[in-house]
């Protein structure tokens, strides 16, 4: 019987400081025989030995092989410890877990990404995949909001790389936006894109306070609830639907999620 809780040892290969409190870790398995097989939208249970385990969404694209990238915000004791680590340090990985984005359903559609803060991390995985497999999709539009310009993650991609293949608009809640000048909540960007609601699927991720506003605005724009997709985050201890922490109603974020459509989320109106 396979032991679900046994992490594989992996090594931090590269670290980039994305914002003052977000770092991106490029990670490889220690045993070269182990390979990464994952889908955009999935997550790994990351072990920092001595500090526990936490779910962290994958931010690299499955089209780029041989490593996985995880963008991590320093928000608790485990992530603080991770932030102290240097390249070469060893961590544990279990997974990938979760359903991932419904690529089948997205094929042939225009994709509108709406991200807030560190919420761009799981979207980045799909964005890069879509760019790499551009022929499968129509337009790629990316709306990204951060608290300040300094809090923007993946700055090179947001300001340069992605703009070659996609339409990118950014905004900041406060201060100066050195990318393209917009200041205001991410919802203020929605009217700036002209979309064909019949041909578009949107993928949304951001802080818990942002998501409901974006979803309802998209809905008002005429998008069907099944065409609005989001990825959720919950406190999680196992990733394999045993610890029981991550449920929303009868659904489990680890197994049924973390990707849900707005239609599915509407059925989860109550939090228990």
């Amino acid at each position: 019987m396979e032991n679900l809780y046994l992490p594989k040892i992996a090594m931090i290969d590269k670290i980039s400081q994305e914002t003052p409190d977000v770092k991106m870790f490029t990670i490889k398995y220690k045993d070269p025989k182990d390979e990464f097989h994952y889908q955009a939208g999935q997550f790994f249970m990351v072990s920092v030995f001595g500090f526990g385990e936490a779910p962290i969404s994958i931010t690299s694209s499955p089209t780029r092989k041989g490593f996985v990238e995880l963008a991590v915000k320093n928000a608790g004791s485990l992530t603080a410890e991770l932030h102290k680590m240097r390249p070469g340090a060893e961590i544990g990985l279990r997974g990938p877990y979760g359903n991932g984005f419904p690529l089948k359903d997205l094929k042939g559609f225009d994709l509108l990404f709406v991200g807030g803060g560190i919420g761009l991390a799981p979207l980045r995985s799909l964005i890069n995949q879509a760019i790499d497999e551009k022929s499968n999709y129509g337009r790629i539009m990316i709306l990204y909001g951060a608290r300040t310009h300094a809090d923007m993650v993946f700055k090179t991609e947001v300001s340069q790389t992605w703009r070659k293949a996609a339409e990118v608009i950014t905004t900041v809640d406060m201060g100066e936006n050195l990318c393209d000048g917009n200041v205001g909540l991410v919802t203020t960007l929605l009217p700036k894109v002209k979309i064909d609601v019949k041909k578009t699927k949107t993928i949304v991720c951001g802080p818990p306070v942002m998501i409901p506003f974006v979803l309802s605005d998209l809905s008002k724009m005429g998008l069907a609830d099944t065409d609005i997709i989001s990825t959720l985050e919950r406190h999680m201890k196992c990733g394999v639907c045993k610890c029981n922490h991550c449920n929303i109603g009868p659904k489990y974020v680890c197994l049924d999620g973390p990707v849900f459509t707005y239609a599915e989320m509407k059925l989860m109106t109550r939090e228990f």
């Binding site: 030995f49 001595g50 500090f51 526990g52 385990e53 201890k237 196992c238 045993k242 610890c243 029981n244």
Partner: peptide
């Protein structure tokens, strides 16, 4: 009741 929590304990560094 099957809920569980998972934590690490350090014996040393």
């Amino acid at each position: 009741c099957i809920c569980f929590n998972v934590v690490d304990k350090q014996i040393s560094e």
